[in-house]
Amino acid sequence: MYLVEYLLLAAALFSIGVYGVLARKNGVLVLMSIELMLNAVNINLIAFGAFRGNAIGQVFALFVIAVAAAEVGVGMAIVLLIFRNRASVNLDEVDLMRG
């Protein structure tokens, strides 16, 4: 088991998540892609923790899971609000900041 395998897997998942965040129009799918990115981080944390032989990586992975749970709750609330106001979850249409 090589450390670098885990790191590359995490990098691949993260990049896929980035693609999803950038390319998806549907708000729910963007949230899912964010979950992918967070999971890639968790894999990194745990792999490094195991590599160094301590449990601190696991502790921080648990914190990341807690934060992700909070994030998805607030994110879903925002998506629901957008849907209620615009009858659509297309992020393209949320462009009030256009210059």
Binding site: L22, D92, G99
Partner: peptide
């Protein structure tokens, strides 16, 4: 010209960020 990149679309900003 500068106005063109102010699209108001968060995902384009995110692309620039990443």
């Amino acid at each position: 010209l500068l106005r063109i990149i102010q699209t108001g679309r968060v995902q384009q900003y995110a692309a620039a960020l990443f």
